[in-house]
């Protein structure tokens, strides 16, 4: 009998997570739907907003300079739906029993999905920015601005991915996971992503000003176009950090509750 190091230590925890991350990335690379979602959707959304709606929306600047952060966050929302669905797929398959009967911290399963989600978002965000530049987007940002914007987006993507993972855990099926993630797709429309919020009726204006997406978008937009941020940056950071902490704890708790019968 081979002896196996069963209990943990930090090295095993890291190696388990890396193995599960490798698995999730392989699975999403091979899942045609997810791949199309990550590659084609950003291109479609960019074209739709820039060429179809953009001409009719007055933002006081070039619309393409206005809309890029919004498209990035919209794609993150769609990506989150994929994440919720792939987590639900695992939770409802017999694979989860096999993984849970191994001497690993079984939440590594979720870590794998979240990391794959970050990689998919990196891909779609790169595509959005590339397409935007091809369509005439001219960012005016220093290296520091780019890094700050990337850091904030990473926090937002992590927060949304853990939230999606939590939704995937409680979903009874892959279909219901997709339904539960609907709100994450919808929120960007109720923000300053595509139109300035002052054009909305006052109650919607209040909603859009007090949800996480508006400050994140405003901050990224200011960083990329080189305009002043004011305190929006801190509000965005607070939202993202709070959301990330909350959704991480929630997802881990839901996972334990679902898997400890």
């Amino acid at each position: 009998m081979t002896t196996i190091a069963v209990h943990g230590g930090a090295r095993n925890a890291v190696s388990d997570s890396l193995t599960m991350i490798g698995r999730s990335i392989r699975l999403s690379r091979r899942n045609v739907d997810t791949l199309i979602m990550s590659i084609v959707l950003p291109l479609l959304m960019m074209s739709l907003f820039v060429y179809v709606f953009g001409g009719a929306i007055d933002t006081g600047t070039q619309y393409i300079n206005y809309v890029v952060p919004g498209i990035i966050l919209l794609c993150t929302g769609y990506g989150a739906a994929s994440t919720a669905m792939s987590v639900a797929d695992d939770m409802t398959s017999s694979m989860i029993d096999r993984l849970r009967s191994l001497p690993i911290r079984s939440s590594a399963v979720l870590t794998g999905h979240v990391a794959a989600s970050v990689v998919r978002n990196l891909l779609s965000t790169t595509i959005v920015i590339g397409a935007a530049i091809a369509m005439g987007f001219r960012p005016n940002a220093t290296v520091t601005d780019w890094m700050l914007a990337a850091g904030l987006l990473l926090l937002y993507v992590l927060a949304l991915s853990w939230l999606a993972a939590g939704l995937g855990v409680i979903a009874k099926s892959v279909e219901s996971a997709s339904t539960l993630s609907f709100l994450m797709l919808f929120l960007p429309y109720l923000s300053s992503a595509f139109v300035p919020t002052h054009t909305m009726p006052s109650f919607l204006h209040a909603v859009s000003e007090n949800q996480p997406i508006t400050p994140v978008i405003e901050t990224v937009r200011s960083l990329l176009t080189g305009t002043s941020i004011g305190n929006t940056g801190w509000i965005a950071l607070a939202w993202c950090a709070g959301l990330l902490t909350g959704s991480f704890i929630l997802a881990a708790w839901l996972f334990r509750r679902r898997t400890n019968g």
Partner: peptide
């Protein structure tokens, strides 16, 4: 965890 180190399950 110790139990999981010495068993396997085929569901």
């Amino acid at each position: 965890t110790k139990v999981r180190g010495v068993i396997s399950l085929t569901g």
